[in-house]
């Protein structure tokens, strides 16, 4: 049986892991390659590396940092940030990424999803959706690291992205990001009930119960978290045990 994935996320800015609250107030949490090696040793199901400076500063993804990080783990690695074209995905894969996450560029030009899926296969393309609740039960996509409102409905875009060939949807609640108050379950439900594509829950994990909630109630196939793992609040083993205790399938390592 396919197991629920627990994914530590490295938010990287200028080559360092950072973690902020609602995409701002960043604090340093270490070297990405070192962090990735620690998670590899703990048997993380995947590691996610998001270059959060890429879109804002208009720079390409930090391929060198990706290379050093990939060199330290035999764990599947998803890399996002600054992907604008098919060739950017190719460069990430050559640097050691297994999957590429597309965010801003896919919102600006959704056909990029089709192009990347056709070239590399859907299983290689993660579409990252950063959403903010703008009215009860309505979520809007924000791009450029959360700095710009797009006017696009997050649920409608999730459906479109899945139809265009996204292999996974990384759904981040900007309202919850870094607050440790739990994932936005209503947002997850709105998306997981309408697409067949696996959904990765992101934004708001503060306790192990939150991970369980995202899976049991939100319908997520994977749970992504940063602070609770970076700062040693919980180990991956504790997370696995919490999910298993709630009846969710997890890998025995």
């Amino acid at each position: 049986m396919l197991t629920i994935r627990i994914i530590p996320c490295l938010d990287v800015k200028d080559g360092r892991v950072v973690k902020g609250v609602q995409f701002a107030n960043l604090v340093d949490a270490g070297d990405p390659a070192e962090q990735a090696a620690l998670y590899d040793a703990q048997c993380a199901d995947e590691v996610c590396f998001l270059d959060i400076s890429a879109s804002q500063d208009g720079r390409g993804t930090l391929l060198d940092s990706v290379r050093r990080t990939a060199d330290r783990c035999f764990t599947p690695l998803t890399v996002g940030g600054g992907v604008r074209a098919v060739e950017d995905v190719r460069a990430l894969l050559l640097a050691g990424a297994d999957k590429a996450a597309i965010n801003t560029a896919a919102v600006a030009r959704p056909a990029l999803i089709d192009e990347c899926a056709a070239r590399f296969g859907a299983q290689c393309i993660v579409v990252a959706i950063d959403a903010k609740e703008t009215a009860p039960g309505r979520w809007e996509i924000f791009t450029h690291g959360g700095a710009r409102a797009s006017g696009i409905d997050a649920v409608a875009f999730a459906i479109e992205a899945a139809e265009r060939g996204a292999g996974e949807l990384l759904v981040t609640s900007m309202d919850r990001d870094g607050t440790k108050t739990g994932y936005d379950i209503a947002l997850l439900q709105a998306i997981t009930s309408r697409v067949r594509t696996p959904v990765i829950a992101s934004g708001g994990a503060g306790t192990l119960a939150h991970l369980v909630e995202a899976v049991r109630e939100g319908g997520a196939s994977a749970v992504l978290a940063a602070s609770i793992f970076h700062f040693g609040t919980y180990t991956l083993d504790q997370a696995r045990r919490a999910l298993a205790g709630a009846g969710a399938p997890v890998r025995t390592v």
Binding site: L2, T3, P76, Q123, C124, G167, E168, S221
Partner: peptide
């Protein structure tokens, strides 16, 4: 897609696939 860790169970003995016995979790995408 089928993405993540799932069990692969060898159908018979094989010098390479014996690494999976009896039923190992491996990564699919």
């Amino acid at each position: 897609p089928h993405i993540g860790w799932n069990q692969a169970t060898p159908a018979r003995a094989h010098p390479v696939l014996d690494a999976l016995a009896p039923s190992a979790f491996v990564y699919f995408a």
